[in-house]
Nucleic acid binder design. Structure first.
Lengths: 220, 220
DNA sequence: TTTGCTCTGATTGTATGTAATCTGCCCTAG
DNA sequence: CTAGGGCAGATTACATACAATCAGAGCAAA
């Protein structure tokens, strides 16, 4: 569905579309992005496409080299664990700030997401629910910069989370779901301390798990 | 001094120069940036200038509105305290990662910076030394993302740190220097825990101080 | 006097053309 | 057969031209 666009947001729209494609996995890390394809796909000139690529580059989703080209960004093991380390220190803080701002209905929705996740046996569905669970618990505080930073961390690590989920989905690790329910319970009791703590350990566990499994990067 | 530039870094160079001007205070928050001036100043066309502005926008130093113009970014009290809150959680972590990588010479240099800062009675000199002290304690770990994030936090808050220093420089608050020496001592003993903790409290005190003095924003 | 509209000048977004740079292949020398 | 240099093709950075949008001045009506 193409909506009417006003002058000046064509670059942003191309970026949004490309971002969505990258996050959905239709573009994979290391894959080359050809501006020519985008210009004809969006019926735009090279300049909005260029703007879009530079925007995504600033978000860390694209890497470009002068006079050479642009690729979907790749992460090394060290990069990935570094991003998780930052997440581990920022996201629990943001969650804490959200606790007093969430309604009971918001918490009910989180509960439903956690339940649905537990029953899900499809990787993509699990990923979507997991992302929705975490991000919707963070969007109530109007902290533009902290929120954007955390969102960026999620986006940059999205592909590797997908890969890890694919490889370990069969392993019946219940701790993830356990954490989610612990978080929901903490939210119900408005226990900021507990929510922050559980989320920090939750992310920390993911980080250690990832650093223990470098084979996730084999697909590169 | 103009060095020979290769094709493809003109935008980055304009951005670097503009960034330096903003950090030095030659551009003030809210001040309009006129692309026409930059094009003739750098003998470049509008496109590299545009690239530079978009790059600085992604760093949070510039705010631009479509079809309207670009200004040096301004921060509200809430924005500023939010940035300090993030700094408070990331910078001590980064410092900790640096501790085992610093040489005795590095620590000596920090000691000299702390001493010089204590004797300095000029605002600009103090600012330069303070920035140098903190950033040079962080540049040993090759953590591209975390380092860049922290550097960005310093840059975005630079002007308000200058303003706060101007207004409170006479107040003989020794705690800042005390913290710096505590940090140097912790580094000498390779006490990561202590270094991290002192820096966290150091930033936290600055944050609370700023939130208590909204008059810093009067000059806007 | 104040409020609202219109129009104009200025400024930016977009399109196209030109020049510089890089990658990969091919050829040659060892 | 291998390694190094150079050439060609492709791709991007930069310059210029044009179209769309916005802000403010000026005027008219209440």
């Amino acid at each position: 569905m193409t909506t009417e666009l006003s002058h000046g947001e064509m670059g942003a729209n191309i970026a949004a579309s490309l971002r969505e494609s990258i996050l959905a996995g239709r573009y994979k890390p290391g894959e080359r992005i050809k501006p020519a394809e985008l210009t004809e796909q969006y019926r735009a000139s090279r300049i909005p496409v260029r703007d879009a690529l530079r925007l995504l580059e600033s978000e860390g989703l694209v890497t470009s080299v002068a006079n050479t080209g642009a690729w979907v960004a790749t992460l090394s093991v060290d990069d990935l664990t570094e991003l998780y380390l930052v997440r581990e220190h920022l996201e629990p803080l943001l969650l804490r700030m959200n606790v007093p701002l969430m309604s009971d209905d918001n918490i009910d929705e989180l509960q439903q997401l956690a339940d649905a996740m537990e029953l899900s046996d499809d990787v993509e569905r699990f990923l979507r629910l997991d992302r929705e669970f975490h991000l919707s618990a963070l969007r109530h505080a109007h902290t533009s910069m902290l929120s954007n930073t955390v969102l960026g961390l999620w986006n940059r690590t999205q592909h590797y989370r997908r890969e890890a989920t694919r490889q370990f989905f069969t392993g019946h690790d219940r701790s993830v779901h356990h954490d989610h329910h612990l978080i929901v319970n903490a939210l119900r009791h408005r226990d900021e301390e507990e929510a922050e703590h559980v989320l920090r350990r939750h992310i920390r566990r993911s980080r250690l798990e990832l650093s223990r499994h470098p084979e996730i990067f084999a697909a590169t």
